[in-house]
């Protein structure tokens, strides 16, 4: 039954991992603008389709 200690440890580590991921994503400002990315996502498909011969459009994804 001492496997329960291992399982508990794993569950805590996983939970803390997700918690840290959330805090980091908030801190980096990912949730500050939730609207623009939804629009931006739609452009790039069409631009690529349009300019297949040209060099690929640079995506400004230095978020």
């Amino acid at each position: 039954m001492s496997i329960i200690y291992v399982l508990l440890t794993i569950s805590i580590v996983v939970a803390l991992g997700f918690f840290a991921a959330f805090v980091i994503s908030v801190r980096s400002g990912q949730y500050d603008d939730t609207y623009t990315p939804s629009v931006r996502m739609l452009f790039e498909d069409e631009v690529v389709k349009e300019s297949t011969e040209d060099q690929p459009i640079e995506n400004n994804d230095k978020h």
């Binding site: 603008d33 623009t36 629009v39 452009f43 640079e58 400004n60 230095k62």
Partner: peptide, 26 residues
């Protein structure tokens, strides 16, 4: 959305622009 698109492609008009990002609500 056209505004977002053209402003985020500003480097086509001015190559010295490395990146531009629009925050639409603000």
């Amino acid at each position: 959305s056209s505004c977002i698109w053209v402003l985020e492609n500003l480097n086509k008009l001015q190559p010295a622009v490395q990146s531009s990002q629009v925050n639409f609500p603000e």
